[in-house]
Design a protein around this nucleic acid. Sequence first.
DNA 1: ATCCCGAGGG
DNA 2: CCCTCTGGAT
Length: 218
Amino acid sequence: MLKKERFRRFIEYFTQHYPDPKTELHFSNPFELLAAVILSAQCTDKRINQISPALFARFPEPESLAAASVEEVFSYIRSVSYPNNKAKHLVGMAKAVMERFGGEIPATVEELQTLPGVGRKTAHVILSVVYNEPTMAVDTHVFRVSHRLGLAPLTATTPLAVEKALMAHVPKQYVPKAHHWLILHGRYICVARLPKCERCDLRDFCKYYEKNRINALV
DNA sequence: ATCCCGAGGG
DNA sequence: CCCTCTGGAT
């Protein structure tokens, strides 16, 4: 199947079944989303949503978080992965936002990536979710599912290479949606271990299914 | 044992 | 490129 046809099938299927996909992280403003995404690294959204209400109640904006001690922030996030690093990142992010951006979350990839704890993936999530900009954040799900469905070549061995492959073929108006589609599919159907191919409607053109159809049917 | 919407540092 | 961080669910 031609690559163009793969993307067409991918977009057609999800447009029909998930017309308005959204992040599962709970937030009510860009600051909360940024904090939640920083915390979400190597951690489930469900866990982040369990601890974020208390965190956001105590630190409702960058100003209070910037003034907080790393130890106090740690006490709110101790149950997420890498709490030491993330507590430092959150306080450092808030201080940088106060000192360099007047308390407002910046709106460009370059500026976002200067914030502690914010890499390319996190920056793109903010731009995509808050501003609906056509940027493709490549996380573990996007990376894995893109390869399996043949949306990115196996020679794309880095997140940046997968990002470029996707951006080359996903129409701009679908980029923010495609990001969430790949995550939802990766989280619930196309999981890392023993993907649920019997529940996947895209298996007829899936490279992973084609190669592993015996195991996948067990 | 493996994975979860990674980033920073060497 | 590699390694570290290192909680919780399955």
